[in-house]
Design a protein around this nucleic acid. Structure first.
Lengths: 340, 340
DNA sequence: AGGGTCTTTGTTAGCGCTAACAATTGTAGG
DNA sequence: CCTACAATTGTTAGCGCTAACAAAGACCCT
């Protein structure tokens, strides 16, 4: 099929010569300009196919001042949530004819963020999507004074910056409401780090739902998202036994908690109900299968691209998009035990 | 700091005017050409700093025919291994001054691969790194007749294509040797899909090690990498009980297996030893903590970039790089039970 | 038929950069 | 003092594309 034109790739000029038109007409065809006659368009398209012509993006970018590239700045790409958000972004981007360039960082230091942003703007990214779930990211970005649209995942928009977020607080409330509906009254919370946006939002949701039900919110322990921290916290909780239900801020910590409970002879859900957050694919196979709150990260990524296109292509203003969570009930939650 | 030049970003010409030199001299400075006097270089660098000049990559690419962009084609980015490989690639790329553009696909259909490759080459990628752990990927890539260097992760190089891989077979042998050293003689294997490169390689390693020890290799079941398949297979294994040890091809399936065993009253490691593959961060917190084979994916990614640079910058020929695995012993393996 | 409008196509310039070559300077040797 | 050669700097062209404008037809109306 593909003919091996020896040296250079074909240019507009080559296509034009073959179709007996000017290069500008070819340009019109590939850019879908309206004023091209059907017959001309046909000839040009044939020539494009025959030569295997592909537009040179560098040349195009030079004159349009658009690179059709979206820069994604991400930390914690090894984690389920960020990785899947990236996936959603990438898919939507490709469908819309955009390229996705990534810059990964560890942690969320101001310097690391600004380096990565510099890297992406050096490439001429038309817009930035930031998947850095740490508190303070927004401030660093604001200080950078960027002149391309920026969309921050997981945080509400603010000033120039747009936000696309899952409704973490609502998710937490769904989880707690589920436990309350099962009759639990002493409901603890193993949170993520409180300097993470998501960590704090879930604490807030837990508090609010408890407050509305007139229940106490004094059982809060801060973890670090890892299964290990969940395990250590679980060991302590198993000794005190002052809650009949625990809302854990992610599935991984819940995994650690389950293991600690198992070792200490605390049965789940007979003695204590446990509910997680995220719904990773593995969570259905924990012991017992974990009740949790599902987050649709791919959808989140797609919404990011929608918002980005609105800004890049139509110059729309910023805003905040919120995606809803969903409760997934499995076997780690049950009615409050009689003997509290 | 940054002055807000109203409309356009500064160009070479602007820097040149400020430093009282020609734009070409500025170009020489930013490209580290030798024949620039120290004083001129100083003035130019000062002007660059004052104006906040950044080179326009599109213009540069247009003339050099290099984009400084590496395209990464990846499937299964939600999985631990591929995600971390990408991370390693990205880090090494950025350090070397390259951009990383990604194209994610689902599955490994020929059409999906060729679409994604087209997307990346449309962007003018200087080289491609392919993280698609399915069998047949190599053939599809070969058929595409690409004119940029291609590095395939997880597979041995072949013809034009380079390979960077973890030594899966060795990893499998380490796992099986560990079980044999504990006295096990009936060692089963829950494999990944056999049309995945890694899945097949681990089966081969398992077979070879057993063969050398004169043990039977008739206990093979094929899974699909998911915790769910591990669970279903575990239920069956728990009923037959014809092995005292099981080598599972990844940690997620091992998780499912553990749950099935737990439900059926099969104790791990007292009744059956279980060993996984990958060493995901969670594996230390399974019940019991999982003995497994560690793979250094970030290292893998870095090696990819090393190889890529050698090809892009020095026109080196292809080759195959192999990274070694490491056995991590935890609590899911123990000596063979007396009563077999 | 002639003047207006609309549609289709062509011509020209320039995006910002680097490569190739030209010009200028400095320096040493005859 | 003038040539030979190297080191440094400047000038010109062009990478492949799109925007803006110009030109040429096609068509309708009076």
């Amino acid at each position: 099929m593909g003919n091996n034109n020896d040296r250079r790739l074909p240019r507009l000029e080559d296509v034009a010569a073959r179709a007996n038109v000017s290069h500008q007409t070819v340009s019109r065809v590939i850019n879908n300009h309206p004023n091209v006659s059907a017959s001309t368009r046909g000839r040009v398209e044939a020539a494009i196919a025959e030569l295997g012509y592909r537009r040179n993006t560098a040349a195009r970018s030079l004159v349009t001042r658009r690179t059709q590239t979206i820069g994604v700045l991400a930390s914690e790409l090894g984690q389920y949530g960020p990785a899947n958000t990236l996936l959603g972004v990438q898919q939507a981007a490709r469908e819309a004819g955009y390229f996705v360039s990534i810059a990964a960082i560890k942690g969320a230091g101001a310097e690391a963020i600004s380096d990565a942003v510099g890297h992406l703007t050096d490439q001429g990214a038309d817009g930035l999507i930031v998947i850095v779930p740490h508190d303070g990211t927004l401030e660093v970005l604001e200080g950078l004074n960027l002149n391309v649209p920026v969309i921050v995942v997981g945080e509400a928009g603010h000033g120039q910056l747009c936000g696309v977020m899952l409704d973490q607080k609502l998710g937490a409330r769904l989880a707690v409401a589920h436990l309350i509906s099962l009759g639990h009254q002493r409901i603890g919370h193993v949170s993520g780090p409180l300097d993470w946006i998501d960590g704090q939002a879930r604490v807030d949701g837990w508090r609010e739902e408890l407050a509305e039900a007139g229940l106490s919110d004094d059982l809060l322990v801060e973890g670090d998202w890892s299964a290990g921290s969940g395990y250590r916290i679980g060991q302590r909780l198993a000794e005190h036994r002052n809650a009949t239900a625990v809302f854990v801020s992610n599935d991984q910590m819940a995994l650690g908690l389950l293991r600690a409970f198992g070792e200490k002879g605390v049965r789940v859900p007979e003695d204590v109900s446990v509910i997680g957050f995220d719904d990773q694919p593995e969570s259905a196979y924990f012991m017992p299968p974990l009740t949790t709150v599902r987050q649709d990260f791919e959808e989140l990524g797609k919404r990011c691209m929608d918002l980005m296109r609105a800004q890049v292509e139509d110059g729309a203003a910023g805003g905040t998009v919120v995606v809803g969570p969903e409760l997934v009930v499995r076997d780690s939650t049950a009615a409050r035990p009689r003997l509290t």
